[in-house]
């Protein structure tokens, strides 16, 4: 059986995922190209986090396949995890460790060696104030913890980023900085899949948006050349869900 595909950085083909016999994802197919920012948009319970967990190999699809960097996820979990940097929704790092120690710990887990300068640069890049770098995370705000997790994701230098509600807890300025950062990553060739329920945020940053409803992809929206996706159009489609 050939488990290799090379066309897209991320690819889901006719994906069905059941959890405790309840169908969560139904016939989900989408692709994320190299250097593309793809936002999977949906309300609560639409299946966004399940999609990410399936891409990370935590959920076994009942049918269909998912590929990361050309490899079928379940045939090469260690490879997949080396190729991806995952940012969870609520970035709960270790509260008794400092940002520095947290990042060092997680990088060591991934067997990645980074110098102190590289760590400093990553913290600066996510605008985490220097005075906080060596403070325990239990003294941090939610946004500061999120920035620490983003710094960790950057330091992984993975070609694929899987972001779960990445701007959750960030203030507007930090959101703008984050969006800028994501665009820089994409322009350097990284593929980014973010799941979010923030229509405005998704339209600001994504090259493409997939609208997820009850586990099904009900629409896709492409950004025009050198432009942004029309927020009103996506919002109208998203709001239909409420009416259903």
């Amino acid at each position: 059986m050939n488990n290799k595909k090379t066309q897209f950085a991320i690819e889901a083909n006719s994906l069905h995922v059941d959890i405790k016999n309840a169908p969560i994802l139904r016939n989900l197919s989408f692709q994320v190209a190299e250097g593309e920012i793809y936002a999977l948009l949906g309300g609560n319970g639409a299946g966004k986090s399940t999609t990410l967990k399936t891409l990370l190999g935590f959920n076994q699809p009942s049918s269909g396949k998912v590929f990361i960097a050309g490899q079928e996820v379940y045939s090469a979990l260690d490879f997949i995890r080396r190729k991806t940097a995952y940012l969870p929704e609520s970035a709960t790092l270790y509260p008794h460790l400092s940002a520095y120690e947290n990042v060092q710990y997680f990088l060591s887990l991934a067997d990645i060696k980074k110098s102190e300068d590289e760590l400093n640069q990553a913290f600066q890049r996510v605008s985490l104030q220097e005075s906080a770098w060596h403070r325990q995370l239990q003294t941090y705000s939610k946004g500061m913890r999120q920035k620490t997790a983003i710094a960790l994701a950057l330091l992984r230098e993975a070609p694929i980023f899987l972001l779960d509600e990445p701007t959750s807890g960030l203030d507007p300025v930090a959101i703008d900085e984050f969006n800028q950062l994501v665009r820089e990553l994409a322009s350097s060739g990284a593929s980014i899949l973010m799941v979010t329920h923030d229509v405005y945020g998704a339209c600001q940053v994504a090259d493409r948006i997939g609208l997820l409803r009850n586990g099904e992809l009900v629409g896709e929206y492409d950004a025009p050349e050198n432009g942004r996706i029309d927020t009103e159009q996506v919002h109208a489609a998203f709001a239909q869900r409420k009416a259903l």
């Binding site: 990370l56 995890r81 995952y86 991934a110 067997d111």
Partner: peptide, 18 residues
Amino acid sequence: SSGRHDLLVSTAKSKYAL
């Protein structure tokens, strides 16, 4: 329960390393 599991597992080079 603290929400770190997925990040830890997806970051670790292998589950034995963790």
